[in-house]
Nucleic acid binder design. Sequence first.
RNA 1: GGCCCCAUGGUGUAAUUGGUUAACACAUCACCCUUUCAAGGUGGAGAGUACGGGUUCGAUCCCCGUUGGGGUCACCA
Length: 484
Amino acid sequence: MINETPRVRFAPSPTGYLHVGGLRTALYNYLFAKKNNGKFILRIEDTDQNRFVEGAFENLIETLNWVGLTSDEGPKTGGEFGPYLQSKRLDIYMKHALQLIEEGKAYYAFDTPERLQTLREEQYKNKLQPIYDKLALQLSKKEVEKKLAAGEPFVIRMNIQPGTKVVINDIIRGRVEFDREVIDDQILIKSDGYPTYHLANVVDDHLMKITHVIRGEEWLSSTPKHILLYNFFGWELPEFAHLPLLLNQDKSKLSKRQGDVAVEDYKSKGYFKEALINFVALLGWSAGDDKEFYNIDELIEKFSLERVQKSGAVFNVEKLNWINSEHLKNKPLEELLILLKEELRISDFSENDYSDDYLKRVINSMKERVTFVSEYLVKSDYFFRPPVSYDENIIQKRWDISTPDNLNNLIEEFEKLENPNHSDYEAALKSVAEKLQIGSGKLIHPVRLAVSGVGVGPGIFELLEIVGKDEVIERIKTAINKIR
RNA sequence: GGCCCCAUGGUGUAAUUGGUUAACACAUCACCCUUUCAAGGUGGAGAGUACGGGUUCGAUCCCCGUUGGGGUCACCA
């Protein structure tokens, strides 16, 4: 096993969207594979017909591709161990289940769901372990054959015998033991002929030569069943690594009720895939140093399963926001330009035409002030249209009787300027302030309000330069009229 | 409830696998810088490492117990 190149898999069931917990699992698998020159395999676990969701599988792959976690082998990519869709491997599972029956390691059972239900209730009432009572094992071979021939619905169950404890050696958790008595005769093949997760994942992991099973902690308690199955088949065990769960603010398992849980949600809110990856990587893992800003290559370089935390991690959106703003600041101007144009295209300003040069100046001026690209349009809408209103609080604070006069003086001075840049505006404003014997703040703040409608934003002279002389003067005139 | 996992400030994590004034980041507060707001800088508050026992010259770190939280007990994954 040591000499083999690692092969890991992400094996989601297609429920309609990619859960951020799933994203983290996929990411750790991916990082582990890339770090160790291994293969990252995508396998779709669609063995529950009742939960079939139209388009879910395609959507899952699309989202995975969006974040950049592309698989080396998978349903769309192909590979020599396919098919990678479990619903297309039914005969394989059945064959293996029948083999176990042959060897007495599994058996047919014909119990009705009602009987199992009452059995469980009974056990619960008597405070017993709720496991199958092996009633079906009392059927003679003949009786079984008769029932099968009659077409009675059946399932196939594992036949777990008393014995020593089942031991898991988990990379993250160390040694974990389970008594056999608590392990149920798990159903392997359901009455619809489909396998359960337990059979399918063991058979596939073996056939696909998976070396490391890296999955969420919710699987830890069913791992003994899986280990027993490997034993039944006489197969070598993979390494196991059970990841800590992602949690809500109240520390319960991250769920839809308490916020966004789908990667698609974060995508549509304007989070960068780089930020999402960066953030989620740090939920349960750290390189051991103070570094918090990572791109995917740095993560691959630094990642190791040994440094994965054991305890669950709360998904803290505030930190995600911070990481997103960090990534935004680090994006090349050209990329932000493309993203801003896309935002504009779907905005109220889609009819307007802006030069790349203009947009680049807008981007730079607001870069430190936004967390999402979409915020350019809400925090600095004044770059795309004249103010539609003026912040009432700022009026109260910065606008008085003398303001219109002062601004008219300023307009006069601005009109003399030719193709002014920010320092020309500054010089002009300062000279007017001096002439009027007032502090420059008495001009700066009203001008900002007049031109932008708000009290916050980039440096005022830079702002004026971007908006442009004619438009600046126009807006000041309008403001003088509109603000008493 | 049985079984299993976990436990460092509000949150995410560090702490040469026993020797630190328990560190960093987010969030929060203040100040500096900008005549704005951010960003940046500086500083503050915030955990004596869930609690109680051990082991040890010495425990965040090792052992036991307690408590708390979580996961899991399906013909779902």
